[in-house]
Amino acid sequence: MAMLNFIFRRLLTAIPTLLILSVFVFLLLKFLPGDPALVLAGEDRDPAVIASIRARYGLDQPLPIQYVTWLLGVLQGDFGISIRTKMPIGDMLVQRLPVTLQLSLQAMIIACVIGIPAGTIAAIRRGKATDVAVTTAGLAGLSIPSFWFGIILIMIFAVSLGWLPSGGYVSFWDSPLENLRYTLLPSIVLGTAAAAIIMRHTRNSMLSILKEDFVRTARAKGLKERIVIVRHALRNGLIPVVTTGALHLGELLSGAVLTEQVFGIPGFGKMIVDGVFSRDYAVVQAVILCSAAIFVLLSLIADILYVKLSPRLQA
């Protein structure tokens, strides 16, 4: 019951955040130079046609009414029609979002596989050469632009060695193996920066956990160091890492914009770039709103995970 209350209260705080963002996004589009009715009319500059377009799309209504109409549509999944693809934007989101989510999840797996052991080793060997090497490698991972790293990986694994494709996408449902071949390099690119972040969080968390009384007690009981680290320290040290990981999944959307561009993957990130260059601003609006909604949802999941995993908070 307490958990349900907590989730309900967190949802209540998320609503104003998303509403304010929806106002920003709506106004951003409204302040754009150019009349959307003229754009929709195309070559036909007949005032009667333009007036009918204004009436049909509600562009002749006062701004607050236009906002409410737009918001009600968005809440029902109606983001409008893309002027580039002529498809409903809601359908485009449904097609593109799973692609980016798959990339992000694969990237997160790579990040955890590299970041958690590296951060743990760095914490155990604090101040030694291994710690310095891992910490510096982590900072380097954060400093590499994803688009450049993507280019370098393409040059090595696609152009020189010919092991993996340089770009493109095959759906998982068409061929799982080919899908993995096409998404491996982009996942590595996305996962590298995430690994650096996970590593830093694991290291910091483990450094404080290793000083705790229960770890000292476990050592005093004569338990093997490996058991002390894995069963006692890591189990507790990973609580903040799990929550950070959930939160960072949202950040991966940012990285996906460039990675999908470099590898030509038809995902959520490429959708915003294509929207920007074809001046398809309703698409840009939809992507911003969805990214924010996903981020808010992941924040909520991170908070719930934190409460669930932390025995003190549960009590």
Partner: peptide, 22 residues
């Protein structure tokens, strides 16, 4: 604070791309 939360909810690069495009 609510406006700040709203802007922080939007991924940094996505927001920068949208603003730069506009």
């Amino acid at each position: 604070s609510r406006c700040t939360d709203a802007l922080l909810a939007c991924p940094f690069l996505v927001l920068a791309i949208a603003l730069a495009a506009f």
